[in-house]
């Protein structure tokens, strides 16, 4: 895993750069450039948020999980069920979806996060499979294979109505994304974030210097689950529908692919990768889905064999070439 220049300097990381400001202008520009495909654009934002939540634990705490969709799906179902039960205030419903996912993470985290490597992947994979099967079998609650449709929500702040053109959904999602991004960004630069990176590099040594390793991991896992749950809740609200695919193993693996496409080790990795993955996939939507799978598979093999760090790695290399600075070799 590559280490970026700001690794030892939290302050450097906390400054907003020009690239970052430009980056956040993109979704606003997209609103004016593609006014007819806003529901698709909302989907892009949601997947970017989900990939970012995975990036928080994978890039910064080194937790490799194959079951992150469990939180996404739980958030989606909780919000959907709240709506069907008559609770239709969107912001608190989204928050409750995230909170439900966070509670799940808080309950399973203390046990789960003592595992590492293959056993951890196995347990997360199995938990994801259990959640999927549970949702499949509990048809009276989740609608089974038919899913829960026709979800309705009140206008945001009582003013902005949910329309079929999706303007409200788009800005509503973008607002959540930006707020949670700021949270993640400051979290990563905080002493807590640095402690997490210490655990990623060497848990034993962190233990020896007195850091509560499992406690830290549970905390970041819970925060990540909260964000993933929010992403799920937003997908339920934006589409008005929740199906079994929100809990599928595919979604967990796709999140991993998105993160790698963007670049591991940077909070923008998930955002860039998630957006890029969904856009590329849409462009290739005429293809046979298996051909898309081939492209992604080949991409993963090439990335690992060449040791490239996704799109972010390439951009970093280009900017350091342009500015004439040589990127320091990792310490």
């Amino acid at each position: 895993m590559s280490v970026d220049r700001a690794f030892y300097n939290a302050a450097e990381r906390n400054r907003f750069g020009l690239l970052e400001i430009l980056f956040w202008l993109c979704p606003i520009a997209a609103f004016f450039l593609f006014p007819t495909s806003l529901s698709f654009a909302t989907h892009v934002l949601i997947m970017a948020l989900f990939a970012m939540s995975l990036g928080l634990i994978l890039s910064f705490a080194g937790i490799v999980t194959l079951g992150h969709a469990a939180f996404f799906g739980l958030g989606a179902y909780v919000t959907a069920l709240l709506s069907l039960a008559g609770y239709q205030e969107p912001i608190t419903a989204t928050f409750l979806g995230g909170a439900a996912a966070a509670v799940l993470a808080l309950v399973i985290g203390p046990l789960l996060l003592r595992l590492t490597g293959l056993p951890l992947m196995m347990v997360t994979l199995a938990l994801g499979a259990v959640m999927f099967e549970a949702a499949n079998k509990l048809g009276w609650l989740t609608g089974g294979e038919n899913g829960l449709g026709d979800l309705r929500y009140q206008p945001v702040f009582g003013i902005f109505r949910w329309s079929i053109y999706g303007q409200t959904a788009y800005f509503y999602t973008l607002a959540w994304l930006f707020v949670l991004f700021l949270l993640t960004r400051s979290l990563v630069a905080s002493p807590f974030g640095l402690a997490l990176q210490g655990i990623r590099e060497n848990p034993l040594r962190m233990n020896l210097i007195g850091a509560p390793v499992t406690g830290h991991l549970v905390r970041v896992y819970t925060i990540s689950a909260f964000i993933a749950g929010i992403a799920g809740a937003l997908s339920a609200q934006a589409t008005g529908f929740v199906g079994l695919d929100v809990l599928s193993v595919d979604l967990s693996i796709n999140a991993l692919v998105m993160l790698v496409l963007g670049g591991v080790g940077n909070i923008y990795g998930g955002l860039v990768g998630g957006a890029l993955y969904i856009v590329l996939r849409n462009l290739a939507s005429d293809w046979n889905p298996y051909h898309w799978m081939f492209v992604i598979g080949a991409f993963l093999v090439v990335v690992v064999l060449l040791g490239q760090n996704g799109v972010i790695g390439i951009v970093e290399r280009l900017t350091s070439l342009i500015s004439g600075q040589r990127k320091e070799t990792s310490p």
């Binding site: 490799v64 194959l66 992947m121 693996i253 991993l256 692919v257 790698v260 298996y290 051909h291 799978m293 081939f294 992604i296 598979g297 080949a298 991409f299 993963l300 093999v301 990335v303 690992v304 064999l305």
Partner: peptide
């Protein structure tokens, strides 16, 4: 890296 590469190989096989 091991997970990613082997998932990639599995994807290629499936396709």
């Amino acid at each position: 890296d091991q997970v990613l590469l082997t998932i990639g190989l599995a994807f290629i096989t499936v396709a």
